[in-house]
Design a protein around this nucleic acid. Structure first.
Lengths: 115, 115
DNA sequence: GCGATATACATTGACAGACGAGGTATAGCG
DNA sequence: CGCTATACCTCGTCTGTCAATGTATATCGC
């Protein structure tokens, strides 16, 4: 089953930050990494990815610099900042809270008809 | 920690369907039930709730009827349909898939810096 | 050389869900 | 009579997602 993007919504930036926690990266690479990690179940659309980068940079969570490739297309690399790392931790906690809440609320449907 | 509504987004209808799986209900009641179940961590806003009811009814997942209260404010009750029950099962599965994917992607940030 | 494909980044406009703000109405309590 | 709780509804705005489109470079097959 593929993943409905409505359900991912709000996690895009955290997913990007999680990738950058492992080291600097660039858009195309991060996108492929996500596609690979999820076994093709989920792919960030390019427009979504790049607008998320802008938001994260504006917020001071990441900084960018152009790579010095001597061949191939130019790459804009992103590096996570201390604020970004802090933000990652917080967003991950928020996700875990939301996850628990949703799990609980959806499980209500399994309770059967009440009298 | 309260729950960011961006993270709930897309689950509103499923949450409502889960409540209606237990039996007919009306908006105000369902809203209070959710607030109570989550210990105050999460509350569906009224505008969100009622627009979700409209969508669910338009989709044939629920049907509504006016209660015959002899006292107090009138109540519009909702009843889940067979299509709604099917939809609940599907949406719940989709959520579980999305949940696993997000968990995996967010866990990437714990891996530490790669060389 | 030339078209196809892959890599790589970027912007615009449209869409959909969430929600603040505002409105209506009934009932009980002091 | 004002306050609070119950109960429903709608309008307009905001925000994140994404299809469509555009740019440019490199490689591979023919």
């Amino acid at each position: 089953m593929s993943v409905a993007s409505e359900l991912i919504r709000g996690n895009t930036e955290t997913i990007i930050l999680a990738q950058l926690m492992k080291g600097d990266g660039y858009g195309y690479m991060i996108n492929k990494a996500i596609l690979s990690l999820t076994g093709g179940k989920f792919e960030l659309k390019e427009a979504t990815l790049y607008t998320a980068f802008r938001r994260l940079e504006d917020a001071g969570c990441i900084v960018s610099y152009w790579g010095d490739e001597t061949t191939g297309a130019r790459r804009r690399y992103y590096s996570i900042t201390d604020l970004g790392r802090e933000s990652y931790r917080l967003r991950k906690k928020e996700w875990e809270t939301a996850e628990a809440v949703i799990d609980k609320l959806l499980a209500e449907g399994e309770k059967g008809v009440s009298i």
